[in-house]
Design a protein around this nucleic acid. Structure first.
Lengths: 198, 198, 198, 198
DNA sequence: CATGAATGAGAGTTCATTCAT
DNA sequence: GATGAATGAACTCTCATTCAT
């Protein structure tokens, strides 16, 4: 859309994106109209079109923004001085927090978006997030196995299994609901199967 | 809607529901309009309203219809004479078939529906399907453990874990795509962790 | 648009077309909006879309309707018992009447429509009207020459020349205006060059 | 709009007008928006409004500019040493060239403009061009008759007839299309009726 | 003078829903 | 019961025009 933009415009664009993100969190992807964004941003109809042509374009940029911000979360956790078990527990704790946020999450919007938009592999946000998750998990498990914390015969399988479970819990939390106990139980089960108790 | 209904009306209602199901399979839940149903059924606009007031009502009944029909599938598999491993593999094969169908499934429509409709637990189709799955899986694993085919310390945890993985694969197959190899690998991993090799 | 239509619908469609024709006469082609038609017809926004998808479609049908109705005008004049000179004068009289109507004519709308829509030769209303005019004029001049009323060496050239003049007068009457005297003078000039005075 | 203007402003105004003319040639009159002009000129929205208030005002000035420039074309042709027949043929050749240009002409824009703007006679560009054409043609025919090249009983009628034909061909070329052969035929017909062959 | 972000009126279009027949 | 024409609310999108900088 807008290509050349001054400092001000960039700020406004950011403001719109952040407001839009909130709207997508509340209403999902499909239900959201340009009018919803306009109303929440308190700008004019035409004003919005100055920056974005459609809710699709808006959502794609929201996603891009989110991706940039969340990358650190993962990497941040690992860089600390901690045992692999600690990191794993930390990771699960973070996931649990995310799963319980429910309404204030882009999850539903993301699913709805990808239900109707076939996105090339490289740009597919869900795929990328999933693959990143698998990679990190593999690294973590490998490390854990090496220093004797974990027992695992098929690291890649385990990593992928964990990510599928998380994906399953995500969708479950948005459709049938997911209690804190259930989450704890499930992550506990995984930890049991992985960590060698002394 | 219609309370008293003759034989004919019941047949028509069933016909509408079956046609609607096909539409929901093709287009998901949200995108479907009353007009879509009317067109596919080749009945009049007003005619449809005689039976159903909204796509929501339509979908709820489609779901009810589906639940009745699919219950047997699960139980059918188990009643045969076979080892627990056979049954497990059979179950995974069935799931794989379902996962690969992709377009001709109500999956997307169901997710979309439950994203925006908070349904009481008892009537929540997804929850029920999930719980049934867990129950069956528990039974199967218990049997397997008893007759020495499987090794498992936490049957409930394992059963739930498997169902979450399947749920995760379902959503994955609809968003980022899921190859046959990936499915085989994943189910293979689970079987590895459960079945005792001789 | 609507393909199957009952008696009633056909009547309504005709009503819309006639109303639309009036609007096109008043405002030309480009300036006319679907809302203009809706307002003049006193039907609902959606109601109009039941019959026509765009002003373009509307105009095409108006043109079709007009063509059917006006064909008789030409042929009607010729079938009478009269000298060729009489018929020619009658034809010019008719053209003059048309030229002076100005506002109540589709002329401007037609020009505007063909300015922006490239129509295949066969369906090009202007071309067809022009060619029909040329053909009739040729026939008339040929007859006149044969019975000694007219003198003309190049019948086709003369016929086409007359039609170009009329076309020129049409556009002139809509842009710079054309007085009755001017029209009489011009048609008089043509008659002078064609009719043999005794 | 702008009343006092420095040298620079005048240059800019001229630049805008020339650019606008190109746009009008491409898109006609009605379809052109202020944005089109702004984009093509690569100036700011507000900047354009400093010079012109509307596309109407713009077009009026473009027309004024064109009138000044094209006057010479006509008079230039006549001042040469040549027979009247030569001049007539030259004039027709020029007209033919113009008729075949089609897209790169202001013709459509001019027609569209005069369809909706009733302009006082004195300032009516089309009328003026037409009248100038008639005058020149009269002069030419008169000269031709005097030196025995042409035969014509009603010079004014003939002059006007020729101009109407040209007007007719102009509009025809923009609506139903006009082949080179057709143009040659038509001009040939006129020359036949005017020039005395030896 | 010049900029370009912002506004808001208005056109196009789609659909759930009603209702006379 | 059944029909399908009709309605009107809600959305999308585009531009002329203004105005603070």
């Amino acid at each position: 859309m807008v290509t050349d933009m001054g400092e001000k415009s960039l700020q406004k664009k950011k403001f719109i994106l952040e407001t839009a993100r909130d709207v997508f969190r509340e209403k999902g992807y499909k239900k959201v109209t340009m009018k919803d964004i306009v109303d929440k941003c308190e700008i004019s109809r035409g004003g919005l079109y100055l920056y974005f042509d459609s809710t699709k374009e808006l959502f794609e940029e929201v996603l891009r923004m989110e991706t940039e911000e969340t990358d650190d979360v993962f990497t941040g956790a690992i860089s600390k001085e901690a045992t692999c078990t600690d990191i794993l527990l930390l990771f699960f704790k973070e996931q649990k927090r995310e799963l319980l946020r429910k309404k204030k999450t882009l999850t539903v919007a993301i699913y709805e978006f990808f239900f109707e938009n076939k996105v090339p592999k490289k740009e597919n946000h869900i795929r990328n997030q999933f693959e990143i998750g698998v990679k990190i998990m593999e690294q973590l498990i490998t490390d854990g196995v090496e220093n004797g914390e974990f027992y695992c015969e098929d690291v890649e399988g385990m990593a992928r299994n964990i990510m599928f479970v998380i994906e399953g819990m995500k969708i479950t939390s948005q459709t049938m609901g997911l209690s804190e106990e259930m989450i704890d139980y499930e992550f506990g089960f995984i930890v049991q199967g992985l960590v060698i108790e002394e």
